[in-house]
């Protein structure tokens, strides 16, 4: 298993290089003078010239890429002109907030998605199944940013139970209960779609597995139905669901963009939206790279989890 993980980690290197290449190419595709785009339209000609020198923007593209990559490896992501601070500092600070939000949403989605999916498959065509199916459908069709607004209206404005925005209270906050109170609404909102997808897939996977020959064998052995469903079938279904949870990590990380904007959560998504509208290109670049890299790691974790479940995948 350790050898397998090492192998997979090594295989990450080209993927990460590919990521940087795509990000680099997208940024290189910016029409007009990149230095002006990076510094904003109010930059002085001297500053533009200096940046062109610094980034080697007057050299051939492959050379530029290697130069840029070298800088990245040294931790130099450039400087954000709108915030006037190093991109990496800002990105890492914001990213920890996003990780809290997206992480809790993914955990919520996995737990409730798996439970709902399994129960709904076991009670196929029963009332539980219908109710789950109904809510999954609603969840998959509601725009998360709209759902966020509705939840704010109900729980923050009308009922006054939970805070409407931010990560900590401005006065006297900062402890864990305070964080949890702020986290609840955005995390739930963010989790809804992923829960729906996971529930739906778990249900299908369970129904598929329950028809397999080895389930008949398990029954023919005289095992209790509980053992058949929750051990034999659920384990096999999990193999199909785990990679989907990995993919959902991507949707949750991306969806955080909306939720952070709606709830004014100080995460990387809200930062990106602001950076795009102020055309702070280096900040966008840094933010996209860090989130994408973390998503790659998420997927690796899902892969490893899947192959630890299924011996046939360990090669």
């Amino acid at each position: 298993m350790a050898a397998y993980i090492l192998k997979r980690l090594l295989a990450l290197v080209p993927v990460l290089l590919g990521l940087t290449l795509i990000v680099f190419l997208i940024m290189a595709a910016i029409p007009g003078d990149p230095a002006t785009a990076i510094l904003g339209s109010y930059a002085t000609p001297e500053n533009v010239e200096r940046l062109n020198q610094q980034l080697g923007l007057n050299r051939p593209l492959p050379e530029q890429y290697l130069l840029w990559l070298g800088n990245l490896l040294e931790g130099d992501f450039g400087r954000s002109y709108s915030l006037n601070r190093p991109v990496l500092d800002e990105v890492l600070e914001r990213f920890s907030a996003t990780l809290i939000l997206a992480g809790s949403a993914l955990i919520l989605a996995s737990i409730f998605g798996l439970l709902a999916g399994i129960v709904s498959a076991v009670r196929q065509f029963g009332w539980t199944d219908r109710i789950v199916t109904f809510f999954v459908l609603i969840g998959l069709s509601t725009p998360s940013f709209f759902l966020g607004l509705l939840l704010i209206l109900v729980f923050a404005v009308n009922l006054g139970l939970l805070p409407a925005s931010g990560m900590y209270a401005i006065y006297g906050g900062g402890d864990l209960p305070d964080l949890l109170r702020h986290l609840l609404l955005p995390a739930v909102t963010l989790a809804v779609v992923a829960t729906g997808v996971i529930a739906r897939l778990t249900r299908t996977a369970m129904l598929e597995v329950l028809r397999q020959d080895y389930i008949r064998t398990a029954r023919a052995k005289g095992l209790s139905e509980r053992r058949v469903v929750y051990l034999h079938a659920a384990k096999a279904a999990l193999v199909a669901v785990v990679p989907v949870i990995g993919i959902q990590a991507g949707f949750v990380l991306g969806g955080a963009v909306y939720i952070e904007t709606v709830f004014q959560w100080p995460g990387i998504g809200a930062m990106l939206v602001k950076a795009i509208s102020t055309r702070d290109i280096l900040l966008v670049q840094g933010g996209v790279l860090v989130v994408a890299a973390s998503y790659v790691l998420f997927n690796l974790a899902a892969d490893v989890a899947q192959s630890s479940l299924d011996p046939r995948l360990r090669r």
């Binding site: 969806g255 795009i276 290109i281």
Partner: peptide, 13 residues
């Protein structure tokens, strides 16, 4: 390898 909406954001950027 990019989270779904993130790439769209980068393109719009």
């Amino acid at each position: 390898a990019f989270p779904y909406i993130l790439l769209a954001l980068a393109i719009v950027a």
